[in-house]
Computed example of a mutant assay.
Amino acid sequence: MNDQRSTRRRFVAGATAATAVALAGCAGGGDDDGGVPEAYRTATSIGGERRDPDGLSSKDAASYQDSPSGDRQCSNCRYYVEDRNDDGVGACTRVAGEIEPDAYCALYVRHDG
């Protein structure tokens, strides 16, 4: 009987650890910032927020879309980091990867500045 309980406990502990690791990946974190150029890695957004490559959401998690939603677009969001290398795209302090200025995501907060 003790052997069976021990096996169950090990299974539950293993399953709990595996779930925690999987959820950590969904929450952002890690150092996968979508391969942005170094100029964006810890850049400051138009709203004054500093980009933390370890605390970014994926584009999927943020519901990133390549087109604006009305007047809501990345170029007027407080988290947007403007183009720094003349390639027409920027970055975001909340979302990993290169960000199109006329894109949009669910994390949008209008920058009034």
Rank of each mutant, 00 (worst) to 15 (best):
residue 62 A to R: 01
residue 73 Q to L: 14
residue 65 Q to I: 09
residue 65 Q to Y: 11
residue 86 D to Y: 09
residue 92 C to K: 06
residue 87 D to E: 09
residue 100 E to W: 08
residue 81 V to Q: 00
residue 94 R to I: 08
residue 99 I to T: 12
residue 83 D to W: 10
residue 75 S to H: 07
residue 79 Y to P: 05
residue 89 V to K: 10
residue 82 E to N: 13
residue 81 V to D: 00
residue 102 D to S: 12
residue 93 T to K: 03
residue 95 V to T: 09
residue 96 A to W: 00
residue 78 R to H: 07
residue 92 C to L: 11
residue 89 V to M: 10
residue 81 V to E: 01
residue 69 S to P: 03
residue 93 T to D: 02
residue 95 V to W: 01
residue 72 R to S: 15
residue 66 D to M: 13
residue 63 S to Q: 12
residue 95 V to D: 01
residue 69 S to T: 14
residue 97 G to D: 04
residue 101 P to G: 00
residue 78 R to C: 08
residue 101 P to F: 04
residue 102 D to F: 05
residue 62 A to K: 02
residue 90 G to D: 03
residue 72 R to Y: 06
residue 86 D to T: 12
residue 86 D to A: 13
residue 87 D to S: 05
residue 87 D to Q: 04
residue 77 C to V: 11
residue 77 C to G: 05
residue 101 P to C: 09
residue 85 N to T: 04
residue 88 G to H: 13
residue 65 Q to T: 13
residue 102 D to G: 05
residue 70 G to V: 10
residue 70 G to A: 08
residue 89 V to L: 08
residue 99 I to K: 09
residue 61 A to D: 12
residue 78 R to G: 04
residue 77 C to N: 04
residue 102 D to T: 15
residue 76 N to W: 03
residue 84 R to C: 02
residue 99 I to F: 11
residue 100 E to L: 10
residue 90 G to R: 02
residue 77 C to F: 10
residue 64 Y to A: 07
residue 93 T to V: 10
residue 63 S to T: 10
residue 78 R to P: 02
residue 73 Q to P: 05
residue 83 D to R: 03
residue 61 A to E: 08
residue 73 Q to Y: 13
residue 73 Q to I: 06
residue 94 R to V: 10
residue 71 D to G: 15
residue 101 P to Y: 06
residue 100 E to N: 09
residue 101 P to N: 05
residue 64 Y to R: 08
residue 88 G to N: 07
residue 102 D to P: 00
residue 64 Y to P: 01
residue 85 N to Y: 06
residue 64 Y to Q: 02
residue 62 A to Y: 03
residue 63 S to H: 12
residue 89 V to S: 12
residue 81 V to F: 00
residue 95 V to P: 01
residue 75 S to A: 12
residue 102 D to N: 14
residue 65 Q to G: 10
residue 99 I to G: 07
residue 82 E to C: 07
residue 76 N to L: 05
residue 85 N to S: 11
residue 80 Y to A: 00
residue 67 S to K: 14
residue 70 G to N: 08
residue 98 E to F: 06
residue 93 T to S: 04
residue 70 G to W: 11
residue 77 C to A: 13
residue 75 S to D: 11
residue 87 D to L: 04
residue 73 Q to S: 13
residue 99 I to Y: 09
residue 63 S to G: 12
residue 88 G to D: 15
residue 62 A to T: 09
residue 64 Y to S: 07
residue 69 S to F: 14
residue 79 Y to Q: 15
residue 89 V to E: 13
residue 78 R to I: 09
residue 85 N to P: 08
residue 82 E to G: 11
residue 78 R to V: 12
residue 91 A to C: 04
residue 85 N to D: 15
residue 61 A to C: 06
residue 62 A to L: 09
residue 80 Y to L: 00
residue 84 R to P: 01
residue 101 P to D: 07
residue 66 D to K: 14
residue 86 D to K: 11
residue 78 R to S: 13
residue 73 Q to T: 11
residue 67 S to I: 14
residue 68 P to I: 02
residue 91 A to D: 00
residue 72 R to A: 15
residue 94 R to E: 09
residue 78 R to F: 04
residue 87 D to W: 06
residue 96 A to P: 02
residue 100 E to M: 07
residue 81 V to T: 01
residue 69 S to N: 15
residue 95 V to E: 01
residue 82 E to M: 11
residue 64 Y to N: 04
residue 85 N to I: 12
residue 91 A to G: 11
residue 69 S to V: 13
residue 100 E to G: 03
residue 80 Y to T: 01
residue 84 R to G: 13
